[in-house]
Amino acid sequence: MIVGNRKDFKEILEKLGPRRRVLVLGCNECVTVCGVGGEREVGVLASELRLFWKKEGETFEVREHTLERQCDCEYIDQIRGFADEYDVILSMACGAGVQYVSEAYKTKLVLPAVNTTFLGVTIEQGVWSERCQGCGACILDMTAGVCPIARCAKSLLNGPCGGSSGGKCEIDNETDCAWQLIVDRLKESGQMERYEEILPVKDWRSGREGGPRKRVREDLKL
């Protein structure tokens, strides 16, 4: 799923500026699962705004609404009836959702309340970890199912570097060394000889480096 962090309340307030009619817009997909922008988090942020402005003695209107998805226009259209009543849409979706809402409501100010961070998995309730960088050319078959691009701090295709120590990365001892994981996995699956292969220079064109990406499936088009 896409994982994010909520922005600091102070930053959100600064971005809102003098605007007091706010539609806090959540998303029922990834950001709900990772506890950053679903219905509950919409409730918390809206509550924070109300408490703050009440304390300041201001008049305001905060509405809470959560869409099934903010990355599909049929859901975004569902707020068409009342979006105009607000000065600003404070989107709690990932960066894709924020942009798509913004594209759909061109005259509206749409602000992000979330910093989108990574594509990852749930390690345990309340803990998420990065797994993929969407490079567009998966090599997991060659690295025993552990992605060095996403999980090695240097994205080394032929690691580990000299900073791997006790299974941890040189950047901090909380972070697993991706190449230690790869070597362990190769060993466990009896493929240690694969370590001897040099992974070739990567063609990054399939990734962000090749420019913004788009996918089309003609057969699915209406």
């Binding site: 240097k154 994205s155 080394l156 295709l157 032929n158 690691g159």
Partner: peptide, 9 residues
């Protein structure tokens, strides 16, 4: 950081 290629490459 860049790390377009690694030391072995």
């Amino acid at each position: 950081n860049v790390y377009d290629i690694d030391s072995i490459q």
